[in-house]
Amino acid sequence: MSHPATTGPKLRLDAVRKTFTVPRSGAEVVAVETADLAIEAGEFLTIVGPSGCGKSTILNMLAGLELPTGGTVAMDGRKITGPAAERGMVFQDYALFPWKTVFENIEFGLRYGPHGKGLSTAERRSRVARCVELVGLGGSEQKYPHELSGGMRQRCGIARLVANEPDVLLMDEPFAALDAQTRIILQEELLRIWGETGDRAERRTVVFITHAIDEAVFLSDRVVVMSAHPGRIIEILDVDLPRPRTDATRTRPEFQALSQTIWNLIRDEVYRAATAAGSAGGAGD
């Protein structure tokens, strides 16, 4: 590790609670109920759970886009009070700027944000070009997002995240809108970009949100399982699968067993949610 282990976790949620007030009725909804969580530097942590379990709320609080109603969220021991370039984010609907090309999207943070300060134009451009290559978008630099497939768009989203060199990578269901094949490919690519094959100390901290159990198990060092109404952490599981992970990983008995364990934890709730939303054809996420 680059930092001594005694410096404590990279990210910490301490008795975090988040409530929302429903605009019209004034009723209070508990999104997250007393969550405690410590995320180590260089760790790939996934939060999985049914719709409405507050997993996205936790991610938003880590980003600083939302602030907790109670408790503290901290990074390197310092309380998070707002968004910052140290904690970059990838979004389910890509959130690419439609008026910017792939290159300009990836360049955005470096060009206008604090992490590009002190970089010359040439240095900035070469870093962007490296990121374009890293995610396999070579040749599409001058295209606009609407000209790309969903998978390509999310590659661009990941490149934009990586280019800004954040300390912590926050990923809000980044592959949820993609088809199954593209999703499998991007899962493996994400692990490669994260530095799975390289030195452990080189890896950034990743917090990844998903509702797909197999995705959570495949990617992570640890899986946090959440449950809804109110949103709370019900289990934290270690994933002891060797890295680098490949297609073979998915067929291992440990993979299957762990997936089954997680499914058992949230099954009842998913069924309840599915029957409640059944007539509407199932809720969006």
Partner: peptide, 13 residues
Amino acid sequence: DRTLIRAARTMGV
């Protein structure tokens, strides 16, 4: 789009 604003904010601008 609020998400675009959020994306920009997480890049520290």
